[in-house]
Design a protein around this nucleic acid. Sequence first.
DNA 1: CAATAATGGAAAGCAAGCTTTACATCATAC
DNA 2: GTATGATGTAAAGCTTGCTTTCCATTATTG
Lengths: 68, 68
Amino acid sequence: MNNRLEEIRKQRGIKQEELAAALEVSRQTIGSLENGRYNPSILLAFKIARFFGLSIEEIFIYEEDGKV
Amino acid sequence: MNNRLEEIRKQRGIKQEELAAALEVSRQTIGSLENGRYNPSILLAFKIARFFGLSIEEIFIYEEDGKV
DNA sequence: CAATAATGGAAAGCAAGCTTTACATCATAC
DNA sequence: GTATGATGTAAAGCTTGCTTTCCATTATTG
């Protein structure tokens, strides 16, 4: 799973910390997602998508093979 | 999080066990999702959506409040 | 009724997501 | 150069997702 989180966040000119606060998660969680340390839960994915007004599929890129 | 998994699966006339096999998860996982015992990981959500040719949002319903 | 098929659901255990704490790095500004 | 702000990253610990195993329930069918 890849994601366009950092790209989209920067487009909107907001900081990791601000995004984290808006989503009610820790800053480290945002950093970990942006740097691919793990995938979001589906709940967090929904929150992120809703925050940016996008669909989950527009932000998170699932590649059949790439596995976990 | 609610989901339309059971509904969609039955529309297609397939059994929990068949769906589980197609998605490479256990039958219990499918049953647990259908009966709301837990939410899927985002990877499983993608697999399910892709299997049915739908978007994640068409299958899993996120309600702002309803919490976890 | 007995047998089989499909589903429900619990328990234990491992894996993954998230938190808090803590420290390092990098850039910018003064 | 030092201070400050933003980000990277790691460790320990809790919670949630998923597996395997096991048994119960509810059709349906012979």
